Amino acid sequence: MKRCVLIGLFLTATTLTLSAFAGNESNLCVINLQKVRDAQSSNQGMNDQTKADVDSTLHRAESAYARNSDDGARECISLTTQAMQKMQSN
């Protein structure tokens, strides 16, 4: 129960951050990448399949960000949001 509440608070904070930094997609991508990494390290209860899915999505997001383009930043944001949703649904 506590884990669900913490994840809910995490996603709420993420949503607020999304609106605050919507003008600068590259920064938002970096922020989301860090949030996913932090959530991974603090959420040791993930099953192996979810952990593998999140790791794969995170790697794809990092690759998209490395393209250093607006499309890459948008893709990174989309992928990191998916990763956070996967962790929440676990």
Rank of each mutant, 00 (worst) to 15 (best):
L18I: 08
S19E: 10
S19L: 10
S19A: 11
A20D: 08
A20V: 09
F21I: 03
F21M: 07
G23H: 04
G23Q: 08
G23M: 04
N24E: 09
N24S: 08
N24A: 03
N24I: 05
E25N: 08
E25H: 06
N27G: 06
L28N: 02
L28G: 03
V30Q: 12
V30Y: 06
V30N: 07
V30L: 10
I31G: 04
I31Q: 07
K35R: 14
V36F: 01
V36G: 02
V36A: 01
V36C: 01
R37L: 10
A39I: 03
A39R: 07
A39C: 10
A39H: 05
Q40R: 15
Q40C: 08
Q40V: 06
S41I: 13
S41T: 14
S42V: 15
S42Q: 14
S42G: 09
N43T: 11
N43F: 15
N43P: 00
N43K: 03
Q44S: 15
Q44D: 12
Q44P: 00
G45I: 04
M46A: 11
M46K: 07
N47F: 05
N47P: 04
D48V: 08
D48R: 09
D48C: 01
Q49F: 11
Q49I: 13
Q49R: 13
K51S: 13
K51M: 09
K51F: 08
A52K: 12
D53W: 03
D55T: 12
S56Y: 05
S56P: 00
T57Q: 10
T57H: 00
L58C: 02
H59A: 15
R60Y: 06
E62H: 01
E62G: 02
E62C: 02
S63Q: 14
S63P: 00
S63K: 14
A64Q: 02
Y65T: 09
A66K: 12
N68P: 01
N68D: 14
S69G: 03
D70V: 10
D71E: 13
G72K: 01
G72V: 04
A73C: 04
R74A: 08
R74N: 10
E75N: 12
E75L: 14
E75M: 13
S78Q: 10
L79C: 05
T80H: 03
T81N: 12
T81R: 07
T81A: 13
Q82H: 09
Q82P: 00
A83E: 02
A83Y: 02
M84R: 06
M84T: 00
M84Q: 15
Q85D: 04
Q85W: 03
K86F: 07
K86A: 11
K86Y: 07
M87S: 02
Q88W: 09
Q88C: 13
S89N: 10
